[in-house]
């Protein structure tokens, strides 16, 4: 498939990778269908609809029906990718996700679009910062937040081949390609973006490149930060977190989500029970005030300086 053109120099919209990958997969496997809630445009599925008109099922603005229909399509032997804004997909139809998809164990792929605070000024009704917490408690639901276009494509391919429910959290925020050599997508495994022994920065989705930039900042101060791309929130790569606790003694989690119950919550649960070390959780404390995405990221410390400062705090708490 052709690489998507950068939005601005070096930055990409991961939705391009999502649709290009889905179209390629759908051309090879007629079982793949897309289910949407009037979200053809926001899911970038216009091209898919043109190529596979019978396989784009638009139930209109009806998320409960959308997820139930997804489960039914799986019962009927299809591989549905149910794609909608993350806030509505996970909030409005949470019981359908729980009962019809996860508890019933159907082979449904849930694709949360424009997640986190991507809708910026539209406010908390349209933000999806609760989804990690709501979904990761369901042990049998794989939850993945890819960090860049390459990982988005790999996650979609993995989900299509996997038998079982998956939630993939995408954003419309432009992100750079991660500079990691010889990448292999492994569901449930952290990707080491850089090695370091002084502190570990754990990100997922849109925050991984920010953590990496913060590591550059810390390096200039003589601090060697390890950076982990924890694309899979559930199941969590416990070995990578416990190794980070043991080897670096201080952890910062960085997520475009609530600090309650998501990636930071998962890391804190694990370390407090097995290897207590200072954990600084960056994210949103609750519903956020009005502001652009860029402003919200700066305001709540999801920035190079914010992450670096959290790293210094974690190290200080660890006596380093």
């Amino acid at each position: 498939m052709a690489a998507a053109a950068p939005l601005t120099q070096g930055l990409f919209d991961c939705r391009e990778a999502w649709v290009a990958t889905l179209e390629t997969l759908a051309a090879a496997d007629e079982r793949i269908v897309a289910v949407v809630n009037d979200s053809v445009g926001s899911s970038k599925l216009g091209g898919f609809q043109k190529k596979f008109p019978d396989r784009l099922i638009n139930v209109g603005i009806a998320e409960q029906c959308m997820v139930g229909v997804g489960a039914g399509l799986a019962n009927g032997g299809r591989i549905p990718f149910v794609s909608a804004a993350g806030c509505f997909l996970t909030g409005r139809s949470l019981e359908q996700v729980k009962a019809d998809v996860v508890y019933a164990g159907f082979n449904v792929k849930l694709i949360g679009q424009s997640s986190g605070v991507a809708y910026g000024e539209l406010g908390p009704t349209h933000h999806s910062i609760e989804d990690f917490a709501w979904l990761r408690v369901m042990k049998d639901l794989v939850v993945i937040a890819p960090a860049d276009p390459w990982e988005t494509a790999e996650a979609i391919k993995w989900a299509a081949a996997h038998q079982g429910p998956v939630y993939i959290r995408l954003s419309r925020m432009p992100v750079p390609d991660l500079a990691v050599a010889n990448r292999v997508f492994r569901m449930g495994k952290a990707e080491c973006v850089r090695e370091g022994q002084d502190v570990t920065l754990v990100g997922c989705g849109t925050t991984v490149h920010l953590a990496d930039a913060a590591a550059d900042r810390l390096k200039a101060e003589g601090i060697a930060a390890r950076v982990l791309n924890m694309a899979t929130i559930n199941p969590l790569d416990e070995a990578a977190i416990l190794a980070a606790a043991a080897e670096t003694g201080a952890i910062v989690t960085v997520e475009e989500a609530s600090v309650r119950g998501g990636l930071g919550g998962a890391v804190a649960e694990l370390t407090s029970a097995n290897h207590p070390v200072p954990v600084e959780r960056l994210g949103f404390p609750g519903f956020v005030p009005t502001g652009s995405v860029e402003w919200l990221f700066q305001e709540f410390g999801l920035s190079t300086e914010g992450i670096a400062a959290a790293a210094r705090r974690a190290m200080k708490r660890a006596g380093k």
Partner: peptide
């Protein structure tokens, strides 16, 4: 065919099966 219990789930799932 599917897990039910909470009400209002069967018809959407059945609709999805019929669409398949």
């Amino acid at each position: 065919e599917t897990n039910t219990g909470p009400l209002g789930h069967g018809l959407p799932v059945a609709t999805g099966i019929a669409i398949a």
